[in-house]
Simulated assay, not measured.
Amino acid sequence: MAVLAIATRNAHKVDEIWAILAPLLPHVHREDVASALDLDAPSPVEDGVTFETNALIKARALAASTGLPALADDSGIAVDVMGGAPGVFSARWAGSHGDDAANLALLLDQIADVPDEHRAASFICAAAFVTPDGREFVEVGRMQGTVARAPRGEGGFGYDPAFVAEGQSVTNAELSPERKNALSHRGAAFRAMAPHVAAFLAEPQR
């Protein structure tokens, strides 16, 4: 019986979020956590114009449909020279939602002629936690860096193969999962969220 729901159908993201949260929620076990896919929950329309709004839309919908406390995140890459795009449209930048290869190829093509010194970007993650009784929490994490000229590495997902975090010489996809989580926008957002989750789960459940 799950005690915590995560609003994603992406198995990579579930694994990544759990790897971040597990050390901070020692009384919660992996089998206590279920994804939206596990729960066969409906997918809400993500029509917000900010990461925070979209994260809340997903968490609210999952909490309402399952009766479980729900975590969600919305994240993407913001490229300075593109005015912060793709931003909230990162997952569907090339048209089809979740086509990581096409999204990355299009972004790299769009900034192919941009000099290295102007390829600054940031990953942004808004994490939301919504409880069945309607309490809501939002935390935001950022990861500064630059966009590489070509994909490198086999790890990670999304834009990871072309993102080099500040102070690093390799892409996110070349980092170990542990190192990536220590540096990442998602790691920062969910580490900040963990105390809210722990406090709720420690309450006597009615």
Rank of each mutant, 00 (worst) to 15 (best):
L104A: 10
A101W: 04
S96Q: 11
A192Y: 03
H118L: 15
V147A: 02
P26Q: 10
R149C: 10
G84M: 02
A22G: 07
V3D: 08
C125A: 09
A188Q: 14
Q144E: 15
A59L: 10
H196C: 14
G141A: 12
A5P: 09
I6S: 04
D15M: 02
L21K: 06
V79Q: 08
R206F: 09
R152M: 09
M143A: 15
V164Y: 04
E31Q: 15
T171Q: 03
I6L: 13
A7R: 01
G167F: 11
A198S: 14
P26C: 14
A148Y: 01
R149K: 11
I6N: 03
D133L: 05
V140K: 00
A41F: 12
A173Y: 02
L201M: 09
A198I: 04
L183W: 00
L24W: 04
V33N: 12
N10T: 05
I57R: 01
A94Y: 05
I17F: 06
E16C: 10
V79E: 06
L175R: 00
C125E: 02
V164Q: 08
A105G: 12
R119E: 08
G98Q: 11
E139Y: 05
A61W: 00
A63G: 11
W93C: 03
E16I: 01
P44S: 09
F190T: 00
V138N: 05
E154W: 00
A128R: 01
A61C: 09
D99R: 05
H118N: 10
P44I: 13
H29V: 14
E31H: 15
A41C: 14
F123P: 03
H118I: 00
D109F: 03
V114C: 07
R152H: 13
G98V: 13
A11P: 08
R142D: 01
P132V: 15
A34F: 12
A22H: 06
L37T: 13
A70N: 08
D133Q: 12
R152P: 00
G84C: 07
E117K: 09
A11F: 00
L71M: 15
G145M: 11
F200C: 07
T146Q: 08
I6F: 13
A128L: 04
L183Y: 03
R119V: 14
